[in-house]
Design a protein around this nucleic acid. Structure first.
Lengths: 131, 131
DNA sequence: TGTGCTGTACTATCTACATATTACAGTGGT
DNA sequence: ACCACTGTAATATGTAGATAGTACAGCACA
């Protein structure tokens, strides 16, 4: 199945759905013109309420990743791949900035933060690409 | 005043209190043996409920930053300065690790993440120490 | 043209969390 | 011993967010 829900994740169900769609788009599992599963079909498969799926799709529409084709369903937009690939990078950038701001409030020096980062980076085993 | 509350912060009031106490300890504004303001006094000054202050203090006790002196108040522990200084560094480390994990899930390469970090770091103006 | 699919909007419920209310228990100082 | 202060526990209230229930509106296809 395309989507996999973990109810004890802390993440909202609709958020998990939206993330996984974006992930699939970024990795070309879903391509422009493909239809995402219908609200009711996906809801049935995941044993959740259709409106929860609808909410995920609403967010994806707001980000112009899917668009409605009335009477037919929701399809991946042409712009979606670029949006999703940019978005995940921007997300990481934003998170990094937040951490740096917090470090600043804690009066950690730039070099201290850099040392922490390098150490964590070297410890972290990537699952995907080579470095 | 020692504590300053911003109600439109997104952060819970009790959390703001706890953070600012820790901050004061880390920067030697509060030293071991000092008494923190009493629950009712601080609550009155901040125009909030005493129990909200109590909750902040409860967390600080759980982290062994303050300890109760019955009938007298709550005092900064001997271990507090080290705990607070370590804690803020650990907090940053944890946040960095989370970002790296998210980057891994997004299949961003190690070098990509490092580039993002270096760029953000160079843009970020520290408020406190020199680098 | 009608039936079955599509998405969507409105409202209600459920849950988690922060905060407030109240009452209780112990200690220091007069 | 008593009073005024300390912290603390239990409970209630308020609020925001996620999810569910129901009803509605448009299009495809036979």
């Amino acid at each position: 199945m395309l989507i996999n829900i973990n109810p004890t994740n802390g993440l909202a169900v609709y958020d998990q759905i939206a993330r996984q769609i974006k992930f699939a788009v970024a990795n070309r599992v879903l391509r422009p013109g493909d239809l995402v599963p219908s609200v009711r079909e996906l809801a049935k498969n995941l044993a959740i309420n259709p409106n929860t799926v609808a909410r995920a799709y609403r967010e994806l529409q707001a980000e112009q990743i899917i668009q409605t084709v009335r009477g037919t369903g929701l399809e991946i937009t042409v712009a979606a791949p670029e949006i999703c690939r940019n978005a995940r990078q921007e997300l990481i950038r934003l998170r990094l900035r937040e951490v740096l701001e917090e470090a600043g409030r804690s009066q950690l020096s730039r070099t201290q933060v850099k040392q922490l980062f390098d150490k964590e980076l070297s410890q972290y085993d990537e699952t995907g690409n080579a470095s």
